[in-house]
Amino acid sequence: MKDPRGRLLILLIALSVVSVVVAGAVYADLEIGYYSPENLGSITQPAPAKNHADAAYTISSFPLYTPELVPGEGRQDVEAYCNTCHSPSYITMQPPLPAATWEAEVNKMGRVFGAQIPTESQASILKYLESHYTPETRKR
């Protein structure tokens, strides 16, 4: 007659040995043949230029790699006005900026650079930037 407690103990020992081996195997996997779980993406090669012997020197169109702005109220105004002169990458490239800095930037675009943005839209652009691109609010 065997003690059921003893059997349980043996089973537990066996289980822990198995789990240790499995865990070890997982670590071993990390050390060789480890590929990223994410697909990092890639870009297609630009096509070679077709040149002629005349005096015109041409390159292909400049590619766009426009980032997506955070969805939210006011994004349409940003896209309608800011995008006239520059891509939204000018916004996403910035560090999280305090609301006062964004206000100075938006004002500069109007007063210095001559962007014609209706007052209402200017307020909505500012509110959007403050809601998503300050140290307190920026998530991505």
């Binding site: 994410e38 990092l40 996403t92 490239m93 910035q94 560090p95 999280p96 900026l97 140290p135």
Partner: peptide
Amino acid sequence: AATRMRTFTGP
């Protein structure tokens, strides 16, 4: 880590 770099820094 397999994570990508964030595309901004700061503050």
